[in-house]
């Protein structure tokens, strides 16, 4: 088992000996094999590795979209394994924003309505939600496209709407699942710059899975996933890979 230790005193995300097993037909699949990882507030973390290495599973567990088979997931120091589905939904809405590879915008809502959605799920009034959504859309440069539905927007514009939606509740963490995978290089570059700017200006932590080399080059902390284990973690303050073999002493 690999053990990676991040620095910091108040971890935003902490996974302790987390495993995730699936059953596909009659075959058991071990997606994660005892992961320990800590992510601090304001970090910008890329999770990379080959297909099937466990990147998405790790992102899903950090985002409380899935539950571990064993081990513990803590968000802001709170153990989330045993929370009810309702409590997890509320915590997810308050704390985490999501950006998906396929943008996953609601097609019948305009860009503005899509961005307002997380706030309205939280119970904010339409006026407040509208105001904050307009601010977020302006930040991502889409103030002229607020009334457009997703089908009328380009891929890059849709992903910017998705980023605005992920940020509208001022979450501590944004999880992005291959955010540039479906974009051309120009749009991919703009999305990378946008995320970096938001990280720098708002202090929002980003965790994203990617294959995109351009994105990896812009990231200080890169976590390599290999066969359900963390192969390496290029921590910004620790130049060397922080990997130990399972059973080893720190």
């Amino acid at each position: 088992m690999n053990t990676i230790t991040s620095i910091g005193t108040a971890p935003l995300v902490e996974l302790r000996r987390v495993t995730r097993h699936y059953q596909i037909g009659e075959n058991p699949v071990i997606a994660l094999k005892g992961i320990d990882i800590t992510i601090q507030a304001r970090e910008f973390v890329a999770i990379w590795g080959p297909s099937g290495s466990g990147k998405s599973t790790l992102c899903n567990l950090i985002g409380m979209l899935d539950s571990p088979t064993s081990g513990t997931v803590l968000i802001n120091g709170q153990e989330v394994n045993d929370l009810s589905d309702n409590a997890r939904s509320e915590l997810r809405n308050r704390t985490i924003g999501f950006v998906f590879q396929n943008f996953n915008l609601v097609p019948v809502l305009s860009a503005l309505e899509n961005v307002m959605l997380p706030l309205q799920i939280a119970g904010a009034s339409s006026t407040v939600a509208r105001e904050r959504a307009l601010e977020r859309l302006a930040e991502v440069g889409l103030e002229k496209h607020v009334a457009h539905r997703p089908a009328k927007l380009s891929g890059g514009q849709q992903q910017r709407v998705a980023i605005a939606r992920a940020l509208v509740t001022d979450p501590a963490l944004v999880i992005a699942d291959e955010p540039t995978a479906n974009l051309d290089s120009g749009n991919a570059r703009r999305i990378i710059e946008l995320m970096l700017n938001i990280n720098a200006s708002h202090g929002t932590a980003f965790v994203f899975s990617t294959h995109d080399q351009r994105l990896l080059e812009s990231v200080k902390r890169r976590v390599l996933m290999q066969d359900g284990e963390i192969g390496s973690d290029s921590h910004p303050t620790r130049p060397a890979v922080q990997t130990r073999i399972a059973g080893g002493r720190p």
Partner: peptide, 16 residues
């Protein structure tokens, strides 16, 4: 189905 997943990810509860 995917939209249901998205809404749930954004924080919509099962009863929602």
């Amino acid at each position: 189905t995917r939209e249901i997943g998205t809404l749930r990810a954004l924080g919509v509860k099962r009863r929602g």
